[in-house]
Structure formats: structure tokens, C-alpha cells
Nucleic acid binder design. Structure first.
Length: 484
RNA sequence: GGCUCCUUGGUCAAGUGGUUAAGACACCGCCCUCUCACGGCGGCUACAGGAGUUCGAAUCUCCUAGGAGUCACCA
């Protein structure tokens, strides 16, 4: 059997991490099995459409490398791949279901339904449609339709027995028929509901494995009834546990910002995002955690899927992102980081040198700005920074050291890290103090920053001789002034 | 509330009757070290609770509790 999976989002907003993970798993399963991955847009709810949403889906899938073999914008032999372009198909099958007795026309008004609902609520019962219109004769139905009465088509669900199926992750699921309602298959506006459309499309598109969120776990038996009525083979079901924001809430764009695009905005690498969410609810068994997309496709199997929900942990993603950043070649890193450098760097320094210092110290790309601000200009700083207990430095004992260091540095032809380092060690020796007594003050003097990506000599090399000496001079006079 | 499902440390998780109950993130400590980070070493913390079955239960059964999903002319 040729595996065919699909990702079938409705274009009603942004794509968040839970959606992306569903797409990822469907993609991985298809790729692992040498099958096809299909994108289908489910836009039958004409009221909830969001203008840009379709494009966000296309863009995200392309950007992440979750390439689809068939889809709205690339076509395929099972198209169209947008439900709004398949309207007649659903109508046709809805009527076929009526003929087979698996569905029926319903003319009940909203008023009657609301009344029934209120009644049920008053009695403390769960509302369930009473199959009122099922008793209508064929003639009555014809007459009403001819008279232009609005109608829907409802699924006719047996009142007795149990409906069950085998889910690949949750195992056997069985639901009493009596708990299922005669859902609407075709709305009065002529559009199908998900209940009908997903079945028709998955079958017509020859989807073999339906991979989707577990919110469909208990309604799947109803869909199976439709497959059975039509004499179609049921697909294999793979329901996924949800990705949570915390113990109680599902991840949502509203109360967090875990959309894919938000994470990219925050400086996360797409590879890290994919890698992290792949492991949120699935694991390959071993201890390895870093996998490229293709490596994931190689090892992905259903056995690794878990049944329980998983909380999205930004901390771990952040760690993994750091791993990905560090694994980049210097060139690749500079390429990725360029926009951030351009945004926050105003002075001219050797980008390669800066990148070398910064790359191993980054967890996200946006941290670049804060980490390199001292490069642009010496910030306002307090001379308290010269105090460091472990280095045994104070503003007072730093002053003379800085003067000596400044003189030594000025005499250097070769203003590189190594040369600077040995020069400053000499200063320490001459003053008969430990290296930290000179390296710490120098770093503070030229950066005015407590924590910097690199030591005193690395930063001196980065800034260059002229700038370094200028900053030394400034800091020396600042100290002289403030120590009076 | 009915129905469906879930439950190993703060988080992700290995584990499928016999283990000192892995590993990772986070946190803490130490080491490395010109600050920080990286790296190395070590520590902390878990089988939701209770009954069974069994020589033996995180693993099997039942009950309880907690949680999630669903109960739309949304998907």
C-alpha cells in the first residue's frame, strides 16, 4: 500500500506550534514510508476565513522544508485541493447518503432547535437532536424543497450498539451509538461540515493514514459510519495528543506567542524549532536528541508517539537553539546573523572576529543586539564595576594598573589577542599582581560592561588599537575624576 | 454532567513482570577560565492514591482522584 498522508488546516488564523507539529508528523510518516504528503485547505466555513491565513500555511510549510507533493498551489491528480472548489462533490455524496438511508433531510428551524436545547438544559439533560425530520416521507421532503424551504442534511446514526475502531496511538476506541448525534453533514448554505468533507476528501484523495489532533478521537466512529455506508475502506487513524501551554491550557496564539512565526521573530532557528517539536510527543528511543529533518524522517515510526499531552517548554527549545547556533559554520552563522548585526551594529568592526566571539555565547539570534551594544560605544557605567572580589580588584587599585596597561598597549605593534595577552601578563608581573588584577580592569575600561562575549584582550583586538586606547584614556580620566 | 482518552522528577521522556527507575532541559555545587558562555564532573527531585493478581509489579486488573478532549449549520 502506497502511503498517503495529508495536512488539512483551515485558514482561520496563524499557524501555531501544535498545527506545525501535526504537519511535521504527517510529513515524517509519509517520507519515512516513501509515500506522498498532501496539503488540503479546509475552508468550508465561509464565515471564519482569514485573508492571509492560506498564504501563511504555504509559506510556513515551504520555509520549514515540509514540502508537499500535492496541494492547492502546485496541483496534483486528486485536486482541487481547496474544499471551496469542491462544493458540488459534497452535495452529490450527501444526497447519495440520503439514498442509502445513512442521512436525511432536516427542515427544523433554529427556533425549534433552540427550544429543544433549552428544554434539555432545563431537565439537566444533554441535548441531542430528536430525529424529528427522519419521519418525513419522500414526498413531503420533495414538496418542502420545491417550496424553497431551507434544509440541512443530517447523518442518520443508529440508536443502538457501539461503534469502535483501532487507533494507532490510543488503541481501541469505542463509543456507544447512543452518545452520538445526528450531526449536520450539509449546511443550509450548501456547504459541507467537517463531518462530511473530511470523509469525502480523504477517500477521494486516497489518504491511507489520517494524522490529526486527538480532538477527533471520539468523533471518528461517526466518520467511520460514513465510510461504511458508502462502501469505502476506512483509513488508518493516528490521533495525536495536544501540545499544551501549561498543565491546563492548550497552546494557542491568544495567550502565548508560540506561533511558528513568533518564534522565528524571537531569533529561533527553524531547524531547532522542528527538532524540538518533533520530540514533543514522540521520541526515537535512544538518547540522541539532535536530528535534522531528514534524519527524523529516517527514524520516525508510530511506536514512538506518546498518548499524553506535552507542555511546550521554551527553555528546552532555547537550549536546543543554542546547540544549533553553535553547530553552524562561522560562515553560515554570519549569514543567519547578518540582519541582527546590521540592525544593532553602528561601528565598523571585523564581522568575522565579532561573530567568532558571539556565536558560542548565543541562545537566540535576537540576543545579538544586547550582547554587542558595547561595541558601538562605551556605555555610561559605574566605577563600581571595577570591584570584583575574586579578582581582588577595586576602583582604587585599578587606576595605576590601567595607566600601566595603557602604556604597554600603546607600545604594541601587533594588536592581536595573543600579543595583547602576553603584554598584559607582563604588566601584571611588573606590578607583582595576578593576571586578573589587570585583565578585569582593562575589560571594564574598554567595555564598561560587566559581562562581555570575550575577555579583555579579545575585545581589545576586536575594537582595534585606536579605539581601545581612546577608551582606556576615557576610563582612566573617569576613574581619576571619580576617585577624588 | 454524559461519553472518550490521559497520569514516571518543575518540564520533555526511557521503561512493556525481576533495573541501584535511563537520558535531556531547568536548578544547585565544583572544575576549567582574562568576565560570561561553552565544556567536564557531581548533586537535587519521579512511578497520582488505594485495592488486587503474582514468588515478584512503574509495567497486568479494578476502584478513586486529578487532568484533557468532546457534546455547533467550527474544524
Amino acid at each position: 500500500m502506497k502511503v498517503r498522508t495529508r495536512f488539512a488546516p483551515s485558514p482561520t488564523g496563524y499557524m501555531h506550534i501544535g498545527n506545525l507539529r501535526t504537519a511535521l508528523y504527517a510529513w515524517l510518516f509519509a517520507r519515512h514510508n516513501n509515500g506522498k504528503f498532501i496539503l488540503r485547505i479546509e475552508d468550508t466555513d465561509r464565515n471564519r476565513l482569514v485573508e492571509e491565513a492560506g498564504n501563511v500555511i504555504f509559506r510556513t510549510l515551504k520555509d520549514t522544508g515540509l514540502n508537499y507533493d500535492e496541494g492547492p498551489d502546485i496541483g496534483g491528480e486528486y485536486g482541487p485541493y481547496v474544499q471551496s472548489e469542491r462544493k458540488e462533490i459534497y452535495g452529490k455524496y450527501a444526497r447519495l447518503l440520503v439514498e442509502k438511508g445513512a442521512a436525511y433531510y432536516c427542515f427544523c428551524t433554529k427556533e425549534r432547535l433552540d427550544h429543544l436545547r433549552e428544554q434539555a438544559a432545563a431537565e439537566g439533560k444533554v441535548f441531542k437532536y430528536d430525529k424529528h425530520c427522519m419521519s418525513l416521507s419522500k414526498e413531503e421532503v420533495q414538496r418542502k424543497i420545491a417550496a424553497g424551504e431551507e434544509y440541512v442534511i443530517r447523518q442518520n446514526i443508529p440508536t443502538q450498539g457501539e461503534a469502535s475502531y483501532e487507533d494507532m496511538v490510543y488503541g481501541k476506541i469505542s463509543v456507544p451509538m447512543s452518545d452520538m448525534e445526528d450531526n449536520i453533514l450539509l449546511k443550509s448554505d450548501g456547504w459541507p461540515t467537517y463531518n462530511l468533507a473530511n470523509v469525502i476528501d480523504d477517500h477521494l484523495m486516497e489518504i491511507t493514514h489520517v494524522i490529526r489532533g486527538m480532538e477527533y478521537l471520539s468523533s471518528t466512529p461517526k466518520y467511520n459510519l460514513l465510510y461504511d455506508a458508502l462502501g469505502w475502506q476506512r483509513p488508518v487513524y493516528i490521533h495525536l495528543p495536544p501540545v499544551m501551554k501549561d498543565k491546563h491550557k492548550k497552546l494557542s496564539k491568544r495567550n502565548g506567542d508560540a506561533s511558528y512565526e513568533d518564534l522565528i521573530q524571537k531569533g529561533y532557528l527553524k531547524e531547532a524549532i522542528l527538532n524540538y517539536i518533533a520530540l514533543l510527543g514522540w521520541n526515537p528511543g535512544g538518547e540522541r536528541e539532535i536530528y535534522s529533518l531528514n534524519e527524523l524522517a529516517e527514524v520516525f515510526t508510530l511506536e514512538g508517539l506518546s498518548k499524553s499531552s506535552a507542555i511546550f517548554d521554551i527553555e528546552k527549545l532555547t537550549w536546543m537553539n543554542g546547540e544549533y547556533i553553535r553547530a553552524l559554520s562561522l560562515e553560515a552563522f554570519i549569514e543567519r546573523a547578518r540582519p541582527y548585526f546590521e540592525q544593532s551594529l553602528t561601528s565598523h568592526v571585523d564581522l568575522k572576529k565579532l561573530a567568532t566571539l558571539i556565536q558560542p555565547r548565543l541562545e537566540t539570534l535576537v540576543q545579538i543586539g544586547e550582547k554587542i551594544s558595547f561595541v558601538n560605544a562605551l556605555p555610561e557605567y559605574s566605577i563600581d564595576l571595577y570591584s570584583h572580589k575574586k579578582m581582588k580588584t577595586t576602583p582604587e587599585n585599578s587606576l595605576n594598573i590601567l595607566i600601566a596597561a595603557r602604556q604597554k598597549m600603546a607600545s604594541l605593534e601587533d594588536f592581536t589577542n595573543d600579543a595583547l595577552y602576553s603584554a598584559l601578563l607582563e604588566v601584571a608581573q611588573e606590578a607583582e599582581v595576578k593576571s586578573g588584577r589587570v585583565l578585569w580592569p582593562v575589560r571594564i575600561a574598554i567595555t564598561g560592561t560587566a559581562v562581555t562575549p570575550g575577555g579583555a584582550t579579545e575585545i581589545a583586538e576586536l575594537l582595534g588599537k585606536e579605539e581601545t586606547l581612546a577608551r582606556m584614556d576615557f576610563s582612566i580620566s573617569k576613574l581619576e575624576r571619580e576617585l577624588q
